[in-house]
Amino acid sequence: MVTTSLTSPFEVASGFHALSDPLRVRVLELLQQQEYCVCELCEQLHVSQSKLSFHLKALREASLVRARQEGRWVYYSVNRRQFNLLEQYLSEYSRRTAGLLSGRYSSCQ
C-alpha cells in the first residue's frame, strides 16, 4: 500500500474524482492564475451559477479549492497543499510500481 501524508484512501479518491470533470479542470486552470469570485468564474466559463456551484462544491469537498467570503461574494483559490499531497501520492505510487516493472514480476504468468 502506498502511504503518504493523506489520511485516508477516501481523500485520494475524492481528489481524483473531483479532477475527473472537464469543467472542474477548467475552473482549476483559471484559479491557478488568481483568485476569482463566483460571478467572475461564471463569466469566464460561460456557465450558470447553479451549475458552477455544483462543481465548486465537489472541488471544496475534495479540498482542492478554498472559499473565502467577503461581504456577499465568495472568492475561490487553489489549495496548493492538497495538490501537493495528490502529487506525493502519485510519485510514491510511480516509485513503487517502477520496481515491479524493472524485473520483479508476479509468479502468476
Results as ranks from 00 to 15, higher is better:
F10M: 05
L23C: 03
R68Q: 15
L30P: 04
Q44L: 13
S63C: 12
L101I: 10
Y93E: 10
S77H: 07
L59C: 04
Q82M: 15
P22F: 06
L30D: 01
L59Q: 00
W73R: 14
R72I: 11
N79H: 11
L100G: 09
Y89D: 04
S50I: 09
F54T: 14
F10K: 08
L28D: 02
R104V: 14
A62M: 08
R68T: 15
C37V: 07
V65M: 01
D21T: 10
V38R: 15
L52K: 07
G103W: 09
P9T: 12
L45G: 04
H55F: 12
V38P: 00
G15W: 03
F16M: 08
V47G: 02
L100T: 10
K51I: 08
S107Y: 06
R95E: 09
A58P: 00
N84C: 10
R66F: 09
V27A: 04
L28C: 10
S91Y: 15
K57L: 13
C39D: 12
T3Q: 03
C42W: 04
E92K: 11
L45N: 01
Y76Q: 03
S102Y: 05
H46E: 13
R81M: 05
E61N: 12
V74N: 05
Y89I: 07
V38Y: 00
L59F: 06
E11D: 11
L59A: 01
Q32S: 13
L101N: 04
G15S: 00
A62E: 09
S91D: 12
G99V: 14
S8E: 00
S50G: 01
L6Q: 02
C39L: 08
L31S: 05
P9E: 09
P22W: 00
G15V: 04
L100W: 06
S63Q: 15
V27S: 00
V47S: 04
T7Y: 10
Y75W: 14
G71T: 08
L28F: 05
R68V: 13
S50F: 09
H55I: 08
K51R: 11
S14P: 01
E29V: 10
V47N: 02
E92G: 11
L31H: 03
R24H: 03
S20T: 00
T97E: 00
L19N: 11
V2A: 05
